[in-house]
Write a protein that binds this DNA or RNA. Structure first.
Lengths: 214, 214
DNA sequence: GAATTGTTACTGACTGCATTGTAAGTTCTA
DNA sequence: TAGAACTTACAATGCAGTCAGTAACAATTC
């Protein structure tokens, strides 16, 4: 028996429809959080019923992980041109991102809310964020080492600490900014902090706090 | 008519019972988030029904704001002795806190989760966090200015940016740590970043990223 | 290239569960 | 003895997910 497999290809407009849903979900999850963001509201925004969304994504959990992947792609697409910068260019890119993010409160909020929510019990986005931070820390660390090499700094200490700190300060400032959007200082703070941290790696100096801490 | 107002005072053990509830709520909200943390689960932990909790706090919203206030108090009580340190001592205190926090994942997670969740639509904890960050930034800024004065640094630039950055880096590192508790570097990163930022205020140097950024 | 057949992309109705809040009743105690 | 500190029972939503059905479309067959 040849058992000719019958398998229709998805319709041409389906991909676009899915993207519409992902966009709407990103907005709703960003505004209200994952647990507090009902499928029905996402469905409304794309003129569909919540059952339609479940048809495309199977479950709310799976929708979330696809939303997170989608955010990644659209981020790279929108800000970068094509390649990931390295060395000093990475940090310049991060600073520019901090500034352009001021015009995208939706995405900023989605990221802040969903990353923190991901550490709660049984959250489906957790492994996404675990991996994301690991990858990003690695990229920042590589860029830092490249800068050290360029400037003849041998055996740079604190590269790992600095990488985590750079990402942390950007995330933390975003939360503060979301709570107080009129505070323009907060955007500038990203540049200041990143410069401070990079400087401390390239040209370490004695601690102003003394050497007797833990 | 004298209308002798009849108004019983609460029973002596009531205060302790309320504290038990606040403690349990802090745990549950920390583990599962505010929206995802049901009253029933908090009630279980103190051997009560959820209606009992509502008797004490009126609504879930009001419970949250009391939980946040409670966290503040117990924090100060546990770590500080009595007074808030200023100047260099504040930063030494912050670094020590970062280290001792490693043994209190519950509270750390509660803070990280609830602060991010507070920026979502209609969250009852929002104004608490708005005020908290404003106050904390002010305290850190004062401490920085004091250090500048002590060391003869005039018209220190970037004090506001540095204050926000210090808080941001601590918060951001906590999220990363919650996602990867085995990563011991992350605790040390707090000290490194705080030192870097304070140094950049006390003894500013040219940006390693160039001066042509936004 | 028309008819057939299976699949996609839904909708609407429904199920079942979780959850906050309320109301009435009970016990205890200041 | 009134009010504090509950409990039990219930009301009222809200929400994810299932299922049966329908219309449109794609692939296969003739």
């Amino acid at each position: 028996m040849p058992t000719t497999r019958r398998r229709s290809s998805p319709r041409p407009e389906t991909a676009a429809r899915r993207r519409e849903i992902l966009q709407a979900a990103l907005e709703i999850f960003g505004q209200k959080g994952y647990n507090n963001g009902p499928l029905a509201e996402i469905a409304d925004q794309v003129e569909m019923t919540h059952a339609g969304i479940l048809h495309h994504f199977g479950s709310k959990d799976r929708l979330l992980v696809e939303v997170l992947r989608y955010r990644d792609e659209s981020d790279v697409e929108g800000l970068d041109e094509q390649h990931i910068p390295g060395g000093i260019e990475l940090f310049r890119h991060l600073v520019r991102t901090a500034f352009t993010n001021e015009s995208r409160p939706g995405i900023v909020q989605a990221y802040a809310v969903l990353s923190a929510e991901s550490v709660t019990d049984g959250n489906p986005g957790r492994s996404y964020f675990e991996e994301r931070y690991t990858v990003l820390r690695g990229e920042v660390a590589d860029a830092l080492r490249e800068m050290c090499r360029d400037r003849g700094v041998d055996e740079p200490a604190n590269v790992a600490r600095a990488s985590a700190s750079v990402l942390a300060v950007m995330d933390g400032l975003q939360v503060q900014w979301l709570l107080d959007r009129d505070n323009v200082e907060l955007a500038e703070a990203s540049r200041f902090a990143i410069e401070a941290i990079v400087t401390a790696v390239l040209d370490p100096r004695p601690s102003p706090l003394g050497d007797d801490l833990p």
